[in-house]
Computed example of a mutant assay.
Amino acid sequence: MIGIILAGGQSKRFGTDKATYHLPGYDASNVQLAVTKLLPYCNQVVVSANVKNQSVIRRQLRDHPAVKLVCDVPPYDQHGPLSGLVAVTSWHPEPTDYLLLAVDYPDLQTKSIAQLAAHPAAFVADDQHLHFTLAHFRTDHQTLCNWLRKGGNWRLGTFLIKKCYCQPLHLAAHQELCNLNYRTRKDQQ
């Protein structure tokens, strides 16, 4: 299984790059935390970055030689999470099981990742939200590109449900599933 870390977002609401941000009280940046969480479950981890943060991410991950860094590829660039998936699958085009994690979940617990890794064709859900950027699915580069070329929309959830046949894996709603979209006052200190 290959781990995918989505780290290429623009972080507009957050105000600074979420992937490379080091939250107060944590021992690493968000992308470093995500890599550490996925490595025990994956043969390889691939970080999907953007042109603005790739050099910082490369420096932050220099101690992780098993991690590959990719960036969006035209004409599929700058379309959100599916752009990241296209970049990863262009590097590894064969049908593959992927374990997907966005950098937005610094509190995600290892036991939750283990549950997701044990459930193919699933995405995390709680009582209030569907967390499509926490998913386990199988796809390949050609399938994804065909989906996008034939009018499949660019929404990750639609692709996971309609093309990868993923089902929700319900986890209890805890702090670990809070998406890091905004910095709190504590984070800005």
Rank of each mutant, 00 (worst) to 15 (best):
T158E: 14
R185Y: 07
S11E: 00
Y41D: 03
G157S: 09
T184W: 06
D17K: 07
A114Y: 11
D187C: 03
I57V: 13
R155N: 13
Q109D: 11
I113T: 04
V86L: 03
Q142L: 10
A172I: 15
P95A: 08
D187Y: 06
D17T: 04
I161G: 11
V86I: 03
Y26I: 11
P120K: 08
G80W: 15
Q128L: 13
A118E: 14
N30K: 04
N43I: 13
K163C: 15
Q175V: 13
H64K: 07
V67E: 03
Q32W: 12
N146M: 05
R138L: 06
L101H: 03
L130Q: 15
L99G: 00
A34Y: 06
P65I: 01
N30V: 05
I161A: 12
V56I: 11
P95K: 07
D77L: 08
W154K: 15
Y105N: 02
H136M: 01
L134T: 02
R138N: 09
V67K: 04
A121Q: 14
F14A: 07
L61V: 10
H170F: 10
D97Q: 15
L144D: 01
A117M: 14
P24I: 00
R183G: 11
I113F: 00
V124I: 11
T110F: 11
V46C: 05
V86G: 00
F159R: 02
W91N: 10
